[in-house]
């Protein structure tokens, strides 16, 4: 009896170790979203989490940790225990924050190499829009006018070094024009100021601008993506218009802390691959008019490297704003 008991205790002690390696996950996984509920990251995270939940048979809990344009939540995930139970849904801005920190000589909130990519989920190109009553019918009109009066045409963005700011500067530098930047705190006020006639242009995602284009309030001029957007088939891309290097997406992707063991990353990659084919997941994405842009870790890493380099260059070119 005694022997049986000790054997059972021994077995009980052994079990967690073996299960941890083979049967991960044994407890709920936390998906950190570094933005408040309702934003792009949150809207992508929730359907992804619920599709993963079904496959993992463990809850995937979305935890919103907003603050400092995403830096708070990202650094929480970057410094989390690399045990596979903390993952991160981040946006394009993830590579911008360390660059801006570098520019100001600040202690960086996190380093990009503290995180390892799992999968890219969505990538929306930004669209250049101007008020429908503005004189510019095409991108060429806009560029020609901007050349005539440098620094006079203004555009709004969601903040200094925000993704919307960088997209616009990328274009301005390729077209060799100077525009006036009016940064706001978030994409909402940026759109409001364009509609209110305070600024003359804005780069933002299709989900935000398409309803206003349909209502005849805004006119689209160009698209930052490599291909045209389904909802706006007549809007040319910058690349079609001869701006070869002007490419930009507001993307959302999954990351894990860099030291997470390879088998666990493998499992997370498998689960994500299956989750993005979930019918309910696809239905939600369709509702949001966001196409899926799934890339597995190796391709996502390549995409990320290229994107980060492009954005870092844009940040350096803008430099410190006086």
């Amino acid at each position: 009896m005694k022997r049986l008991a000790s054997a059972m205790i021994g077995l009980a002690l052994l079990l967690p170790a073996t299960i941890a390696a083979q049967e991960y996950p044994t407890r709920p996984i936390t998906m950190v979203v570094p933005f408040p509920p309702g934003g792009v990251a949150d809207q992508t995270a929730r359907p992804t989490a619920s599709a993963m939940e079904k496959l993992l048979r463990q809850p995937v809990v979305v935890s919103n940790r907003p603050g400092a344009a995403g830096a708070v939540g990202i650094s929480v995930a970057a410094n989390a225990r690399p045990d596979g139970y903390t993952i991160l849904m981040a946006l394009s801005s993830i590579s911008v924050i360390p660059e801006a920190d570098k520019l100001f000589g600040r202690q960086p909130a996190y380093q990009l190499n503290q995180l390892t990519p799992i999968a890219l989920i969505t990538a929306d190109p930004t669209i250049l829009v101007v008020p429908a009553d503005s004189p510019w019918k095409t991108l060429a009109d806009f560029v020609a006018d901007a050349k005539k009066r440098p620094g006079e045409i203004s555009y709004s963005s969601s903040g200094v070094y925000s993704t919307l700011h960088l997209a616009m500067e990328m274009f301005a530098s390729a077209a060799d024009i100077k525009l006036k930047h009016v940064p706001f705190n978030g994409a909402g006020p940026a759109l409001t100021s364009l509609l209110g006639g305070h600024v003359q242009a804005l780069a933002s995602g299709p989900g935000v601008v398409v309803p206003h284009i349909e209502a005849g309030k805004l006119r689209p001029l160009a698209n930052w993506g490599a291909a045209r957007v389904a909802a706006l088939p007549d809007v040319p891309t910058f690349q079609e218009l001869g701006y070869k290097d002007v490419e930009f997406y507001i993307w959302a992707g999954l990351f894990a802390p860099a030291q997470t063991p390879a088998p666990l990353i493998g499992k997370l990659r498998d689960i994500t691959r299956a989750a993005v084919n979930d019918a309910e997941f696809l239905g939600t994405l369709k509702n949001m008019q966001t196409p899926r842009a799934y890339l597995d870790a190796p391709e996502f890493q390549k995409f990320l490297d290229k994107d980060a380099a492009r954005l870092a260059e844009a940040v350096k070119r803008i430099g410190k704003v006086e």
Binding site: G38, G39, G186, L191, M288
Partner: peptide
């Protein structure tokens, strides 16, 4: 238009349901 923090959250809720908020 997301004219403040609270309307912004409300609009996000609508977008998730496939209602594109606009004029």
């Amino acid at each position: 238009v997301p004219s403040g923090p609270i309307p912004a959250v409300m609009l996000a809720a609508l977008m998730v349901h496939g209602v594109s908020p606009g004029p």
